[in-house]
């Protein structure tokens, strides 16, 4: 872009890697806090807490996200071959899978949790009567669950928007390097889920 400076590592790639590093530290704060609470409270694994999550649906969702990462890698491959049509179609598959993940999370899992009486809030009234009781610890689990899956869902939305706008931007065969950058961010979203899934669903 500029004739004044010399390029070393492509600056877009460097920038996205730094952004990903920053995001990992933000998620690190949530994950570390959750692990500390989990170590202190075995109640997090009880039937009313992690036991009430649907592992089958969670596994399906994990697979959906894994496949969406594979399609994103294929889109990157196509971009390297300068095959715009192929790159675009694989990005559309990625978007559909991403939205499917979000649909299952927000359209099925969360409503099921709500119908079982779980919300992000915990009752001040119960806390006043029985401070530190098992009910309170279980509700802390659900606070963490909605906090972390919600924050992850927000990243799915942002990642999808990024992929969508990159897809619009490559129509004329220009800016193909951006497919790699959008893909890198999408992998971060996947990586975080691969940590969240066993932490919230599987350890009971």
């Amino acid at each position: 872009m500029s004739d004044v400076t010399i390029e070393r590592v492509p600056k877009g790639r460097l920038g996205v890697w730094l952004l990903i590093a920053g995001e990992i530290v933000i998620f690190g704060g949530f994950i570390a806090s959750y692990i500390l609470a989990r170590l202190e409270y075995p109640e997090f694994g009880s039937k009313e807490a992690a036991g009430d999550l649907n592992i089958v649906v969670g596994t399906v969702n994990t697979l959906i996200l894994l496949i969406s990462n594979w399609t994103m890698v294929k889109a990157h491959e196509a971009a390297l071959e300068k095959n715009v049509a192929k790159a675009k179609s694989f990005m559309i598959y990625t978007l559909v899978l991403g939205l499917l993940f979000l649909g299952i999370k927000l359209g099925y899992e969360w409503p099921t949790d709500f119908s079982h009486g779980h919300t992000i809030s915990s009752s001040k009234a119960i806390a006043d009567q029985a401070p530190g009781s098992e009910v309170m610890k279980v509700s802390l689990f659900w606070s963490y669950y909605f906090l972390m899956t919600g924050f992850h869902g927000l990243h799915i939305v942002v990642g999808s928007l990024v992929i969508f706008f990159v897809m619009l931007g490559i129509s004329g065969g220009q800016n193909l390097h951006r497919v790699e950058l959008a893909g890198a961010y999408w992998h971060l979203v996947e990586l975080v889920w691969v940590i969240l899934f066993p932490m919230l669903y599987l350890i009971q």
Partner: peptide, 18 residues
């Protein structure tokens, strides 16, 4: 912020927080 606006108990000892 969630403790303030969504009534969670992440930092409230009575609700298991720290």
């Amino acid at each position: 912020l969630f403790d303030r606006i969504f009534n969670t108990g992440f930092y409230d000892p009575a609700r298991g927080g720290d």
